[in-house]
């Protein structure tokens, strides 16, 4: 997996580079917008992490220029600007996701992985999601575990659907919130945890095996036991 990091703060890029390399990524670093655009247009990257504020060429200008060449490599924007309008500007310019500084590497990793996977299999129009003995029928809007039907609230259904679509991948609380509620902001409280706890109670009754696992400091993952 090849990652291009366009970032001018030395400490930040050194750390991100190292951390991604530990995760098995090949990481190239560009220190300014011009160099970043030059490397990005080569088209050999699976994902680009782009800082919003860069010397020489602004991050958004760089992104717009990249998209203008027809390059569709997924781009995550890293920004110190947390405001809604900034985020919308970023996504409008062609960004696929937006991470606000200061970020945790875990969060960035989760989003990078979600994006690269998403980019690989976007056209899987599945109607059934399965993990272990849990079956989610998207057409019938039904969830069964070991043949037993489980009734879920609409939001619980959406949460489970998102987790199942990305099974095996760690999904953070903010990612879940953004995907299911479609609002951009961090509710800060443990509210998503409470939703997941409720969902678990419904899914994992009678000593059934655990399907939703908590990853400490990162988020949740759905995995067959």
């Amino acid at each position: 997996m090849k990652l291009l990091l366009i970032e001018d703060d030395e400490l930040t890029y050194q750390y991100i580079q190292k951390a991604f390399q530990e995760q098995g990524y090949t990481v190239d670093v560009a220190n300014d917008g011009n160099e970043g655009l030059f490397l990005a247009t080569s088209g050999e990257y699976d994902i680009i992490v782009l800082d919003r504020m860069l010397s020489k060429m602004d991050g958004l200008t760089c992104l717009s220029a990249l998209r203008a060449t027809g390059n569709q490599t997924p781009v995550i924007i890293l920004s110190a600007l947390a405001h809604v309008d900034e985020r919308i500007k970023g996504l409008k310019a062609g960004g696929d996701d937006y991470v606000t500084k200061p970020f945790s590497f875990q969060e960035l990793l989760i989003r990078v992985e979600l994006l690269t996977k998403r980019h690989q299999n976007t056209n899987g129009n599945t109607t059934k999601l399965v993990v272990d003995d849990l079956i989610m029928d998207l057409l019938g809007h039904k969830v069964t575990r070991a043949g037993q039907e489980i009734s879920l609230q609409p939001k619980e259904f959406q949460l489970l659907q998102y987790l199942l679509t990305h099974q095996g991948q760690v999904v953070s609380r903010t990612v879940l919130f953004e995907a299911v509620w479609e609002y951009y902001f961090d509710p800060k409280t443990n509210v998503i945890d409470v939703h997941i706890a409720n969902l678990r109670k419904k899914l994992e009754t009678n000593n059934q095996s655990q399907l939703i696992h908590t990853v400490r400091g990162a988020g949740y993952v759905v995995r067959a036991p």
């Binding site: 703060d9 400490l11 930040t12 750390y15 190292k18 951390a19 530990e22 110190a80 500084k101 200061p102 945790s104 590497f105």
Partner: peptide, 16 residues
């Protein structure tokens, strides 16, 4: 915020 972010990065690195 910038130095604090750097401290955060370092702590995260150490923790990892």
């Amino acid at each position: 915020r910038t130095p604090l972010s750097r401290i955060r990065i370092r702590i995260e690195e150490v923790l990892r």
